[in-house]
């Protein structure tokens, strides 16, 4: 299987002014192939977010290579990397980051800002996505009128709009109850089952995955299922 994400001995150290440096990633290597559902566990501050942001082209590591679909994303110019990200990578965050003044449909359509896409096609796809996530009855609602679980599903729909090859989810269930967590995780699994690569960073060790890894002191180690 082709590696969608190939993390090659990636290191990232934070050097806050006046404080001792922290090695968030220490020669981390990781690969996620198409159709794979992989989880990185770790306690708060272990570097999970750094790993996801580096994987998503949002944070350049100090050393190592990050290949997405064979492209070294940090060798791209910022403009090209932004476009590459828009076309290839989807993000889901713990805080959803929904835009409060857009309704659900408009929020799901926001990735279209990054790509020149036909509006009717985008809207059609957004509606399908929303329907798939069971939110068809909430199309015109602003995020403030949605439950927490529904908000995360909207965030998921937004991440999947451009049909990315890689989905990066940072604590996607961090704010959800068990039932909603299960729904969101199930949708992520469905995405992987349709050929997408999914990498989740979470402190929740109960999530079942194709491969589960633990990030501690900047280093990854496998976790027995």
């Amino acid at each position: 299987m082709t590696d969608i994400l190939d993390f090659q001995t990636v290191s990232k150290t934070y050097r806050p002014r006046g404080r001792s440096s922290v090695a968030a990633l220490d020669q981390v290597s990781l690969a996620v192939t198409a159709g794979q559902f992989k989880v990185v566990c770790g306690h708060s501050g272990s570097g999970k977010s750094t790993l996801l942001l580096s994987a998503g082209g949002l944070q350049k590591p100090d050393a190592g290579k990050v290949l997405v679909k064979g492209t070294d994303i940090y060798h791209l110019s910022p403009e090209k990397r932004a476009r590459f990200r828009a076309e290839t990578i989807g993000f889901v965050f713990q805080q959803f980051h929904l835009i409060p003044y857009l309704n659900i449909l408009e929020n799901v359509m926001t990735p279209a800002l990054a790509l020149a896409m036909d509006r009717s096609e985008v809207e059609q796809r957004a509606r399908e996505m929303i329907e798939w996530l069971g939110l068809a009855h909430r199309l015109d609602h602003p995020p403030s009128e949605l439950s927490i679980g529904e908000r995360q599903r909207v965030a998921l729909a937004r991440a999947l709009l451009n049909q990315p090859a890689l989905l990066l989810a940072d604590e996607p269930t961090g704010n959800l109850d068990e039932q909603n967590s299960e729904i969101v995780i199930q949708h992520l699994r469905d995405f992987a089952a349709r050929g997408g690569a999914v990498l989740i960073a979470t402190h929740d060790t109960r999530i079942e995955a194709d491969e589960k890894l633990m990030l501690e002191n900047g280093r990854l180690r496998p976790v027995a299922s």
């Binding site: 949002l58 932004a82 993000f91 980051h97 835009i99 926001t110 990735p111 991440a159």
Partner: peptide
């Protein structure tokens, strides 16, 4: 800020 962060994450260019 949150809006800016997510827009940048989904690939919206600085110029936009």
């Amino acid at each position: 800020e949150s809006e800016i962060g997510i827009l940048r994450a989904i690939g919206v260019k600085e110029s936009v």
